[in-house]
């Protein structure tokens, strides 16, 4: 199997497109952001919430949500946490390196579902990455929405990602940022506690609010419950779930979740659609 087959240019969804890393940004310990440009120069169109399958040649392929601005398709942005062998190898790549991209895949955040409503974003640590394109787009179209609140939690004050964005968003008069950390050194003036407390503090009109939640699955239920206490019912809560997507196109079976394949029918779901199966253990 080692002879070089004939080069073919085609729209085979299993073949990656070469992209060049143009810049590497260290976010926090073990988390880095890549800015990428297609080697063929073509723009990369996507919608907030979609993900790519990212290949480091010779190492492997992983799903990574897109964290850039969908209005700037000339630059693809991925934020990656080194937690396994592939992501650890990726952490060693420098600007100029070539990686493979397949995508965009998956169901995007339904931004139109929030038009005319208050919007609350609930997330923590690297969960801000998949929400960032949506937040940017909501702020682009700020007049379409009511209040905009961002609840973002991290482990400590050195684990805050996208700090520049958070500062910029916080500086806007039309956006509320509730940043919370689990612990901080004495004298820290910010909020310390769980994301749930930030949701409780958010100034939103619950029954007229749409929530976009990106937390680990262990915490998604808590976020939905806390939003429920604020009057945001599950039919207005959009969450992302996580399975081990391998093909990204619904053909390999790995990310099956009941009647859906997360890679094409998700990873964004309205919580009431999945509530029953979500509570079945090991499903």
């Amino acid at each position: 199997m080692d002879a070089m087959p004939a080069p073919v240019r085609h729209a085979d969804p299993m073949v990656p497109r070469p992209f060049r890393i143009t810049r590497v940004i260290r976010e926090i310990d073990g988390v880095f952001t890549w800015r990428l440009a297609a080697v063929d120069g073509a723009p990369f169109d996507f919608r907030p919430g979609q993900f790519n399958m990212v290949t480091q040649f010779g190492v492997g392929e992983i799903p990574v949500s897109i964290s850039g601005d969908c209005r700037r398709p000339e630059t693809l942005v991925h934020t990656i946490r080194a937690v396994g062998p592939v992501t650890e190898a990726m952490q060693g790549l420098r600007a100029g390196a070539i990686v493979g991209i397949r995508g965009p895949f998956g169901r995007p955040w339904p931004i139109d579902a929030a038009i005319g409503s208050d919007v609350i974003f609930v997330t923590s640590t690297i969960g801000l990455a998949p929400l960032r394109p949506l937040i940017l787009e909501v702020l682009h179209r700020r007049q379409d929405f009511g209040k905009v609140v961002i609840c973002y939690g991290t482990r400590g004050i050195h684990d805050i990602m996208f700090e520049e964005d958070l500062h910029a968003w916080r500086a806007r008069f039309d956006t509320n940022v509730h940043l919370t950390v689990h612990s901080a050194p004495s004298g820290y003036r910010g909020r310390v506690g769980g994301v749930a407390a930030a949701i409780h503090a958010a100034r939103i009109d619950g029954p007229a609010t749409v929530a976009f939640v990106c937390r680990s699955e262990a915490l998604t239920r808590q976020a939905v419950n806390t939003l429920g206490e604020r009057g945001v019912t599950p039919d207005r809560v959009w969450v992302t779930l996580e399975r081990n997507m391998k093909c990204g196109i619904g053909l390999c079976g790995h990310c099956q979740f009941g009647p859906s394949f997360m890679c094409k029918d998700g990873p964004v779901y309205r919580f009431d659609e999945i509530e029953a199966l979500y509570s079945v253990r090991e499903f």
Binding site: V8, H10, V15, P16, P18, I98
Partner: peptide
Amino acid sequence: WRAEPGADGVEIAT
């Protein structure tokens, strides 16, 4: 597919 180092960084063929 097979990817080999190439002029553009990488050549991918099927």
